[in-house]
């Protein structure tokens, strides 16, 4: 009898592979930098510590606020897309199509300078969060709509037959199944929010990217500045993907089981 065993790769194998990948990546970078005769000097950055920290915090705050608002927008429009009242359904679909079909940069200018001015929204931070949320909300809407559509209708039929109220069905059936399915996509979208927030620099929201632009005008060390800021963004998005793993473990039943098999 032949048995197939799903063996984990050995520790040596893992370590060696990681080492090779690291060497190749760093080597490539180092080669590129030296071949154009660039000498990187990060020491000048330390005098801008305070501003960088503030920009970093602003990026975090804007991203978190946008995450919350875009989740609300996304959930409402996801449900609205299938609303019985046609006007609501059309509105939600048009919103998703238009926002997903145009670049964020265009939307920022349009909403900030035309709509924002017309309606008297002059706080650029509030405007920034609103614009970013409208943008990301359209993507989240599609994620949620797709997740809801993927749930087997029979699950609702079962819930009905055992006498669950609609509210309990939502809480005990729809929500946990939906979460297990869309959590990876949702956290991926959160990482996008963090990166997309850099575009708000064009309306002078002083977040990380805007901060680094200002610093560059001061110290003329573009490469170091942007390299450093790239690392900061990566730290943020990497934390999100780590967090996502923890959450997935909590919600994904198949994963939960396979842990112990």
């Amino acid at each position: 009898m032949k048995q197939t065993v799903n063996k984990e790769p050995s520790l040596v194998n893992k370590a060696a592979s990681a080492f090779i990948v690291a060497v190749v990546m760093i080597g490539f970078l180092w080669f590129s930098v030296t071949s154009i005769g660039l000498e990187l000097d990060f020491s000048t950055l330390s005098q801008y510590r305070q501003r960088l920290w503030e920009g970093f915090l602003m990026t975090v705050i804007i991203s978190l606020a946008s995450l919350i608002v875009s989740l609300i927008i996304g959930s409402l429009t996801a449900i609205g897309q299938n609303a019985r009242i046609l006007a609501i359904s059309y509105f939600c679909r048009a919103y998703v199509q238009i926002i997903r079909g145009t670049p964020l940069l265009v939307q920022i200018y349009f909403f900030y300078y035309i709509i924002g001015t017309a309606w008297g929204i002059d706080n650029r931070y509030v405007a920034g969060v609103v614009i970013l949320s409208i943008f990301e909300g359209a993507y989240i809407s599609e994620i949620i709509r797709g997740g809801l559509a993927s749930i087997d209708h029979q699950q609702y039929e079962v819930a009905k037959s055992i006498g669950l109220t609609p509210a309990k069905t939502l809480q005990l059936v729809t929500f946990p199944i939906l979460m297990a399915r869309i959590l990876p996509a949702l956290t991926g979208q959160f990482a996008s929010i963090i990166k997309d927030s850099s575009l708000l620099s064009v309306i002078a929201v002083i977040e990380l990217t805007q901060t680094v632009q200002e610093i560059s005008a001061d110290n003329f060390r573009m490469f170091e500045n942007y390299f450093f800021v790239g690392v900061l963004y990566f730290i943020l998005t990497f934390s999100v993907s780590m967090l996502s793993r923890v959450l997935e473990r909590r919600y994904n039943h198949e994963y939960r089981v396979n842990q112990y098999l």
């Binding site: 087997d152 037959s161 055992i162 039943h253």
Partner: peptide
């Protein structure tokens, strides 16, 4: 309240998958 007093078994996939 009526449904709570009636058991129903489906052809298949009658358990909550999660």
């Amino acid at each position: 309240s009526y449904r709570r007093n009636i058991g129903f078994v489906f052809q298949s996939r009658g358990l909550f998958e999660h």
